[in-house]
Amino acid sequence: MVTTESIIHVRNMVKKFGGFVANDNLNFDVYRGEIFGFLGANGAGKTTAMKILCGLSLPTSGEIKVAGFDVYKETNLIKRNIGYMSQRFSLYEDLSVYENIRFYGGIYGLSRKLIRERADFLLETLNLSDIRNKLIKDLPLGWRQKLAFSVAIFHKPGIVFLDEPTGGVDPITRRQFWEMIYQAAADGITVFVTTHYMDEAEYCNRVSIMVDGKIRALDTPEGLKKQFAAATMNEVFLKLARNNQSV
């Protein structure tokens, strides 16, 4: 259910590393229940912005609220209400599927009983019940990614941040992964996802495109294609990126 209630509120967000401006005056809102695509070339500043929204990094300036909480003062409240899946693989390879779920569930404060029930249900729906005691390192990458996503939303957060979740995954698994994202959105979780696969951008409710630390475009995929007179999101992206190179 996409609403117009702002769950991520960003005004004039700036992040500098010394003299380098990674995020140059970003302004946007993410609405409760939507799938928000956060696009940009490598090094455009997507991951930096996402880390600020997750409370992993402090902005240099700007007014930012996530799930209604301030990123300067209420990072711990933010962390309680979000899930995060990083671009690097984030499960423990030397722990089994179930041990990973139990650990992350545990540090989010879920009871052992609740963890057991939810894990049973999760493994059932993912069709992974028979490998619950297998070590992560023995699983194929696609399964690990799906599992990492499930772990990121295991505590039923309001928002989940996905940082290039489908990097290095085959097209079929990517498709399945996006089905999981839709399911999460249908369950009321707002999804904030970065990617540089432009076909994935088409799956989002709204998309922003970052170039060199600035947000250059923000609209629905249809709106962007119309605005840039392009047939696909790929064309939109190339037009923006090229435009930037000629400047």
Binding site: K79, S86, R88
Partner: peptide, 13 residues
């Protein structure tokens, strides 16, 4: 090194 610290750091621990 393996990146799991980031996952820990986004939790309310």
């Amino acid at each position: 090194e393996i990146g799991t610290i980031e996952q820990i750091n986004v939790t309310p621990i």
